[in-house]
Write a protein that binds this DNA or RNA. Structure first.
Lengths: 215, 215
DNA sequence: ATTTCAATACGCTTTTTACGGTATTTTTTA
DNA sequence: TAAAAAATACCGTAAAAAGCGTATTGAAAT
């Protein structure tokens, strides 16, 4: 009996998943959660074998939740259920300790296979993501999964204000800083993320919210 | 018997929805589609009463599909199943002719209710969106649903290049234009969308891809 | 046939961003 | 406790974007 926890803020998806998983008599959905905090709460009492984890959730998102799970409950296998097949996102989650990554084109058969695989200690990702998994397994990140945060909290604060359309002067006002300071932060953010203008920063940030720890 | 078509590129969600809807014996899912083009194809042969439509789909997205449905098959009721509770998005879809808008926090009960409502000619939106529906019903858009495109195709082309991180000079190179022309387009885009800098444009564009006709 | 709109392009000014630094203080971590 | 990282701030210059315009051409709509 494989004990499963589903974490997603989309209730229709949760209910659907429960019905799909019910087909397999050796699967048992022992709980559902609408955000990461509920996941962490639940596993204090009872341990699932596999967690199906959405990335974009309120309160505590999938990336943050995965971080906690990996440090406190390293034996629980996590499969990411994501809307994004963005390469960077897949790598981020694998590096953070996910054992599976399913894209939205997954059908029931592959979902079952993914759960079976990760339960047996193997990795499993959607077919369209196989090359990314291989790249990950060959990389050094596979060995030393040092999930240090790329951006500092101050930098994240500034990124979110940039996203909201604020100029450096406005950000400086809001945070009681000099515009030079905000400028320096912006430079450092670009350097760390290997970007070179505001447009690409906003796009990157919106597509990697969970990973960056935004919102 | 209410005939239902489900259009979503997320197979897990589709399969889940089918199982959920199977509870109601007066519902019949007569088809599923992974994109808008499949929807249009299917209804040439057979007419559903209600379509559950996702916004972000490849090939032909929900907004585009809704446009075609409204002009060619105005009697088919469309319920948007969306991940976004962004106010602007909800209004856009209502203005485009959607009769329902369900956010991801919807449970089975509300899904059933939505289908019953729109089948009987009423509007139905998730509870958290009630005020937006009211605003829509009071607005003039409710009367004259003139869905003229906000941005021209040239402007859309430029928006997508801006999103990709290109400067005006780079865009000018790519499109064989003067930077002055690109600059003018940029200004007109800002004017039309009521925005004032690149960061807010990128955010707006990424959050309104379907509506703008991007990607 | 005339008005409207889209696409093109230019002029000028100001603001903002980008990129190259340096440097001090505080906090964190090894 | 020493070293590293984060947060702060400044200096200067160049590039880019933003905010005012105007104007021509061609296509589309009325």
């Amino acid at each position: 009996m494989i004990k499963i926890l589903i974490a997603d803020d989309h209730n229709v998806l949760i209910n659907g998943l429960k019905l799909i998983l019910a087909v397999r008599s050796d699967f048992k959905v022992i709980a559902v959660a609408n955000n990461g905090a509920e996941v962490i709460d639940f596993i204090k009492n009872e341990r699932p074998d596999v967690i199906l984890l959405d990335i974009n959730m309120p309160v505590l998102n999938g990336y943050q939740t995965l971080g906690i799970l990996k440090s406190d409950y390293p034996d629980i296998k996590v499969i990411i259920l994501s809307m994004l097949n963005d390469k960077r996102n897949v790598l981020n989650m694998l590096e953070a300790g996910a054992k599976g990554y399913l894209f939205k084109d997954t059908d029931d058969k592959h979902l079952f296979k993914a759960i079976d695989c990760v339960y047996n200690g193997e990795y499993y990702v959607s077919e369209s993501l196989q090359n990314i998994l291989e790249e990950f397994l060959l990389s050094n990140k596979y060995q030393d999964k040092k999930n240090k945060h790329l951006l500092s909290s101050r930098e994240l604060e500034i990124v979110s204000l940039i996203i909201e359309g604020n100029t450096n002067a406005e950000i400086a006002d809001l945070l009681f800083l000099s515009t030079r300071t905000v400028d320096t932060h912006r430079k450092n953010i670009f350097y760390k993320l290997n970007l070179n203008n505001t447009a690409s920063l906003v796009k990157y940030a919106l597509e990697n919210k969970a990973f960056l720890g935004l919102q």
